[in-house]
Nucleic acid binder design. Structure first.
Lengths: 233, 233
DNA sequence: CGACGAAAGTGGTCCGACCACTGCGGGTGG
DNA sequence: CCACCCGCAGTGGTCGGACCACTTTCGTCG
């Protein structure tokens, strides 16, 4: 009678669970280096091919990082590492789910903006104002969009929640492409965005969390409303 | 001069991008079946091994589903499929990031509960009340926890946003384990949870979105506060 | 003493073989 | 004629080995 592990699932799936367990139990530390693929495979009694599939999967999830010629390392396991895949999800979403994602963004962005109103520094507020002014000064859609993203990124960063920032990053960068087309279709889209951003900035400057929350919710809600209407095709 | 694709990155990474692109462009439809591993590998000019790594990665992400002996299929690409990995992230989180995740949950749960107050049906409200009563009636921590989760799940479902529900599902099921230990440490934890849940239920019954939002935020905030204090070790 | 280069180590890719499971279609028994 | 069953072809799952590309290290040479 031989000793063989659990029978359920594929060997690769089990390998993934074993590695994540090792990280969870503290056997492998963030930033630390793993044994070689060959060693790991031998240790779990599976082939190198199967082990490689497990490692690749965890690499895509942002848990591991493979450096050619050097070794395999655990990432710092920071929010940005792990939530990068969130962008992929948003990228593959269509129709109704896009509206749902915007509702998620509305909830998070309004909460983050409210917190930012209470915590943002003078320097941070100046940076936000700089992007606001840059948006007022340009007519180039690409540049406008870049400062738009930076505007929100600066505010969310001021809220001090990296996890929320990482989620919003993945939620915005892709979805916002729709807003580009919006600018092409509706002439007043730029103007409306400018005034909404100005309202957010005023609330931040006044250190008024509730006003900031409302302004941010209204801003995202406007995009959401437009998208919902556009789904009538 | 031969035709060979882009040189950057690993072939596996490129294969992943090619497949996701095929899905994004509509070449592959949700629920549809892909060519065989051997065909796909040949089509992209790479080995079956590399193609398998790409497929495995997308399988873990919830984009593809491999059925032994049958073929490889695109998932329905619904929120639950894609955000399952969100639980893994929460599972690997520790310390400060757990607090940040609870803040994310607070923002989403309060928004969902507010929406639910406006939309929940009589049947839904009855189901919520059933779990509330069940929590009042038991002393078993496991059963209490099960009804606790079901209580929130029922409310979030009533909000009608599957994406938000999927995120909250991954955000609660793991994190909530901490609450179990909480119940063991603080005797009045059960009682406090009961009263907080009762407040949420009353707000839902009154169809009062703002009261529901506040009650939900306070509920999650209480857990958050406790966790933050517990981090002083 | 410093810079260069060779060698060892490690991940990346490919190949071919075989196993395990599914699905289908033909053959068989009713 | 129909229903059931079995076997075969197809497909994903696993394995082992070979070789390539890159990094790191250490010894050697100037």
């Amino acid at each position: 009678m031989e000793e063989t592990g659990p029978r359920k699932g594929t060997v690769t799936q089990r390998a993934i669970e074993r590695i994540t367990a090792m990280i969870r139990e503290g056997e492998l530390r963030p930033g630390g280096r793993l044994p070689t693929e060959r060693d790991l495979a031998a240790r779990l009694g599976i082939s190198r091919s199967s082990m490689r599939e497990a490692i690749r999967a965890l690499t895509v999830l942002g848990v591991l990082e493979a450096r050619h010629g050097s070794g395999i390392y655990v990432t710092r396991l920071e929010a940005g590492d792990l939530l990068e895949t969130f962008g992929v999800v948003a990228d593959l979403s269509r129709g109704q789910r896009l509206v749902e994602l915007l509702q998620v963004r509305r909830a998070l962005e309004s909460a983050a903006t409210a917190t930012a109103a209470a915590r943002i520094t003078a320097d941070g507020l100046a940076a936000v104002g700089k992007h606001l002014a840059a948006m007022d000064a340009t007519d180039d859609p690409e540049e406008f969009l870049a400062h738009d993203l930076a505007f929100h990124r600066e505010i969310v960063a001021a809220a001090g929640n990296e996890t929320m920032a990482a989620i919003l990053e993945g939620l915005s960068s892709r979805t916002v492409r729709a807003r580009v087309r919006r600018g092409h279709q509706e002439e007043d889209a730029f103007a409306r965005t400018r005034s909404e951003h100005a309202a957010i900035h005023r609330a931040l400057a006044a250190r008024d969390p509730e006003a900031a929350r409302a302004a941010a919710a209204a801003h995202v809600g406007a995009v959401e409303e437009w998208l919902r209407a556009r789904l009538e095709d």
